[in-house]
Design a protein around this nucleic acid. Structure first.
Length: 258
DNA sequence: ATGCCTTCGCCTCGAAGA
């Protein structure tokens, strides 16, 4: 089973890149964030023509998540229980795979804008509700994988300039503690199970030639329960699409399970 | 740096992202 996560920063703009990447990477599951499309405008036919089923929860202009899959989704959710939120950031579903039934949660965690703002408070509250939901999910589903744009760099190793970013948005203590609280439920940051070096990022700002200089952050994560961690054979960041024409500012993160 | 780039909406600039 191969699963990937990719913040595409507008599926309307990025659909050609997504179809190209699907043909090359051949994932069983691809979780997208920031589709920025109303469900009425979602390109379901073109994705199905490429050989994938798809479920989605979107809105105009902002947010929006989708899961492309070889097998059908069941038990789909589009909300965090206990959080009445018009922002479309959550998509959960269960899939049959060659490693058994897998519960998938695709997330676009709020950005938070700046420490101390209303959006930052919303982000921390959202993460607290996520923790409550994951505590239930990890008990209900031994094979749980939580993927997406977490908008948190887990540690200094995940930041090109840790001193410059320390305490700021995406790197503040409260955000990192909220991520730690998710991991403490029994989830693993799968990339770190395979790679212990720094300067491995999943997002680079469009401004200032940051990708060419490899000045980025690792904020797109694949978290797995223990059973899936033990079944994992690889986790990697595919930087190739970030170098394509008209790229997303994020690049895919991929995991394989045997 | 109230900068940089890219997206969207509504309308050619402002807001937001990270």
């Amino acid at each position: 089973m191969r699963i990937a996560t990719w913040n595409v920063n507008s599926l309307n703009v990025r659909l050609p890149q997504v179809l190209e990447w699907l043909a090359e990477a051949k994932p069983d599951l691809l979780c997208l964030q920031e589709t920025k499309l109303d469900d009425e405008r979602f390109p379901q036919d073109l994705i199905e023509y490429a050989g994938y089923r798809v479920v989605y929860s979107g809105q105009k202009s902002y947010n929006g998540v989708a899961i492309l899959s070889r097998n059908p989704a069941k038990d789909v959710i589009t909300e965090l229980p206990g959080l009445d939120d018009p922002q479309r950031r959550v998509l959960g579903a269960t899939f049959a795979t060659d490693v058994g039934e897998v519960r998938v949660l695709d997330l676009y965690v709020p950005n938070g804008q700046a420490v101390g703002t209303d959006k930052y408070a919303y982000k921390l509250d959202w993460l607290a509700r996520l923790r409550d939901h994951l505590a239930e999910q990890i008990a209900a589903y031994p094979k749980l994988v939580v993927v997406g744009d977490f908008n948190i760099a887990p540690g200094d190793l995940d930041v090109y300039d840790p001193d410059g970013w320390r305490g700021g948005i995406l790197c503040s203590d409260a955000e990192r503690e909220a991520l730690r609280a998710l991991l403490d439920l029994g989830l693993s940051d799968l990339y770190r199970g395979f790679h212990d070096q720094g300067e491995r990022f999943s997002w680079w700002d469009y401004r200032g030639n940051m990708f060419a200089a490899n000045r980025g952050l690792r904020i797109d994560l694949i978290l797995t329960s223990a059973a899936l961690r033990d079944a994992a054979s690889d986790c990697r960041i595919d930087t190739v699409p970030r170098a394509w024409a008209r790229p997303s500012d994020h690049t895919p993160v991929v995991a394989d399970f045997a």
